[in-house]
Every structure is written in C-alpha cells, then in structure tokens.
Simulated scan of single mutants.
Amino acid sequence: MKIDLGGKAVVVTGGAGAIGRGIAIAMARAGASVVVNDIGVSLSGESGGGTPADSVVETIRAAGGKAVANSDSVSTWQGAHKVIAAALDNFGRIDAVINNAGTLQDRMFFRMSEEEWRSVIDVHLRGTFFISRGAAPHFKDQESGAFIHMTSTSGLIGNLGQANYSAAKLGVVALSKSIALDMERFNVRSNCIAPFAWSRMTNSLPTETEEQRERVARFQKMEADKIAPMAVFLASEQAKDVNAQVFAVRANEIMLMGQARPLRSVHTAEGWTPEAVAQHAIPALRPGFYPLHRSSDVISWDPV
C-alpha cells in the first residue's frame, strides 16, 4: 500500500528547520503541494536576514514537486491566516497543517523573564491555535482535513529549565484533543507527534558536563528525517481513523504516549477532613504517585 497525497495541499510551519524540512520534502515526495513556512530567524527569535524556506522549495521543485515559500509569522492571527491563504492562493485548497514552528528560551523558572515566557508561548501554543483556526473553516466546509501538531516529552514528562516550553507543549496536546472533539463531526482529525531528533532546537543543549555530553551524543544519533514518515501517514487517508492520539518518534522507534486517566481513587461516606486526607487518602494514593522524573529518566534507553 503506497501512501499517496496527490491532489492535496499541506502547510508545514517551521519548514526550513531540520524536522520541518524533512517533513516538507517527504510530503512533496508523496505527491502533496507544500507551503513551506519559515520566518528565517535564529533559535532565540533574532532575524537571520534570509529566506531559508526558499532553499527547501528549490529542493522540492528540483525533484519535480510543487511548493511555495512563505515567511509570515504564525505567532499572530493575521500572519497565520496569511500562511493558510498562501495554500489557497497557490494550490486552491488546504488539506493538512503541520504545526512545527518553534523557538526556545531556556531558563530556570525562578529566573525566567516575562519576555522569555511570552515569546515561547506565542510561537508554540498561540501559533498552533492561529494556524489551526485559520484552516478550520476550510476543513469544515470540505468535511476533511488533518491537523498534525508537534508536542514534546518536555511537556508530557518534564524537563529542567523549560517552564515556558513545557507549558506550551502540554497545552498543544490539550488543544489537539479539543480540536479533535470539535471537528470529529466534519471528518477532521487532530494528532500530536513528540519528535526526538537532532535539530537547531536540540543544538542548543548544554555540553558542560559528562552527563550533558552523553545526552547530546544520544540526540545526534536521531536523524530529523525519521520524523517525516509518521507526519506523512497522519496527513493521509490511511489515517482517517486515527484521531486525538499522541505519538513519540525516536530514530526507528514509534511510541504511543499515555494520556491522563484516573489511576486510583478513595472514598468515604462521611466526607473528608484535612486530617482524614492525611491519615487515609494520601497513604492509599501514594503508591500511584509519579516520581519527579525528567524526560531522559523515563525514556532512558539508547535509540534504535
């Protein structure tokens, strides 16, 4: 069975970075027409003075595919709607959006500034909403469409120095679930991918200690192009019954991630007092407590 995206148009935000580039090229290889969106700034949001999306478009066109570049910012309502308009103006339709644009402003929570908080939330969470909201009326009218959002185990599990990024990425999961619930009646689906890959995002990881250098070495084994097959599948008709799921992709490994469900419960007919909570409820619930793990503690084995 060959995945065929012929006749479909997709938007890939952050399409000039390592992961986005791989996804954009793979989408075009599968037959889709692609809007490669990238504003061409550094990881921290500074202007790079170029249009890196053009390079991806040239690569796609050289292989016989269809693509256009777009440099509007996903972090504003107007910019995001212009990104969607680029698909409609150039290809006459929109069938999938891949919310991949990202930025990092790592800082320990107790030192994080308002700007460091806002800039990351604006791109990851607000940007995901704005792009998705821009595509939603078209998906609704044609009664088809796929939302593919990039989350992170920093939000799903946890990480040091990333309160802004973790909050945004876990927010993306909740947003995806809400989109799935609201759009299911129109045959529109919404899923998340938590990618593990060496990219400009992970390129900023510190390497001051032996533990940090080992972590970076593990990441360097994870090729960014390995994320693309799952994204292409989720954009295809073969994924029509896959909705509201969270996948992690790590080298040649695909994981289905858990979602919040009750683990244990306690009940008393008389109602609870603070003392009864301390004496009875917490001891009964404590075996189900999660340790204060980071992502690397939970997914600790070498990539395959």
Rank of each mutant, 00 (worst) to 15 (best):
V123N: 01
Q142G: 06
H124R: 09
V172I: 15
D54R: 07
D106E: 03
M108G: 00
V123K: 01
I60L: 14
E116G: 14
I98E: 00
I94P: 04
R126V: 04
G102W: 03
L125S: 11
R107N: 11
G145Q: 12
T128R: 12
R133D: 13
Y165T: 00
K177E: 07
A53Y: 03
S113L: 10
H124I: 11
G161F: 07
D106V: 02
A87Y: 03
I94K: 03
M108P: 00
A85Y: 10
F110R: 12
V74Q: 03
A168P: 05
S113C: 11
T153M: 09
L125F: 10
G127C: 12
M150I: 09
S176T: 13
R118S: 05
T76F: 12
N164P: 06
A174T: 07
G145R: 15
A163I: 07
I157V: 15
W77D: 13
K169P: 09
I131H: 04
A146S: 15
D141S: 13
V56K: 04
N90W: 10
S71T: 14
N70H: 13
F130D: 01
G155L: 06
F139C: 10
S144W: 11
Q105G: 02
S119W: 00
F110K: 05
A63V: 11
G134T: 05
A180Q: 04
L175G: 00
R93Q: 15
A146Y: 05
I157W: 04
G127S: 05
E58K: 07
G92M: 06
T76P: 01
